Simulated scan of single mutants.
Amino acid sequence: MAAVIFDLDGTLVDSAPDIHAALNLTLAEEAAPPLTLPQVVSFIGNGVPVLIERVMRARGEPADAARHKDLHDRFMRHYNADPATLTTLYPGVEACLRGLSASGWQIGLCTNKPQGPSREILGSFGLLELFAVVIGGDSLSVKKPDPAPLRAAAAAFAAGPVLYVGDSEVDAATAAAAGLPFALFTEGYRKTPAQDLPHQALFSHFDALPALLQGLARS
């Protein structure tokens, strides 16, 4: 039976507005100027610790472990309290996931976002039940692009082809390191031209994904 594993941020959901809001609530606590949404989008992809590192760098702050922990913990408090209000599914995602599930595909998630808010976001859209496995950025001691999280997600499935779907440089590198076919969603948070990233398929709308996955599973 074929399985498909998805990234979350920038792939299934546009979560940047909620991340942006939580970061700016964190900064407002110390009367610091807010970040712009494009800035925050450029920081997303490598997990919360790196997100906070990039925030500190953008503000000209020196690397400091205590300061990093303080910002990290306060950000997570705000984000965990409200991770889904401003987050939206990309067009066609729900129909695609439900169609794949009805057709017998096994579905998983592998994201650098912590598992708690990842599950809450999927649940807020009524989609969590479709996912046989959810691997978050805090599920293992390493994060993507290390292939271990993706391999852990793939190990949850019975024998059969396993494919990965993501939107970013991190996802492309993770799939390549794990040796899995990769379908690149072009409308997410990627900064590099799509053709410069390793991939086996490209798509800009989820209506096109089921047919692409069927082709990849047969190849």
Rank of each mutant, 00 (worst) to 15 (best):
A3H: 02
D7K: 05
D9K: 00
V13F: 01
A16G: 09
P17A: 02
D18T: 02
A21S: 15
L23R: 05
L25K: 15
E29N: 08
P33I: 12
P33Y: 05
P34N: 06
L37N: 09
Q39A: 05
I44V: 11
G47Q: 03
R57H: 14
R59N: 10
R59G: 10
E61D: 07
A63R: 13
A66D: 14
A66T: 14
R67G: 04
K69E: 15
R77Q: 15
N80P: 06
T85F: 03
L89V: 11
P91S: 08
V93H: 11
V93K: 12
R98V: 08
L100V: 10
A102F: 00
W105S: 03
W105N: 05
I107G: 05
L109R: 01
N112G: 07
P117V: 08
R119Q: 14
R119A: 13
F125P: 04
L130E: 11
L130I: 12
V133C: 07
V133P: 01
I135M: 03
D138K: 05
V142C: 05
P145H: 05
P149I: 06
L150M: 07
G166D: 07
S168Q: 07
P181D: 11
F182W: 03
A183G: 06
L184M: 01
F185M: 02
G188A: 09
T192H: 03
H199T: 11
S204Y: 14
D207K: 12
P210Y: 04
P210R: 08
Q214P: 03
G215T: 13
S219D: 15
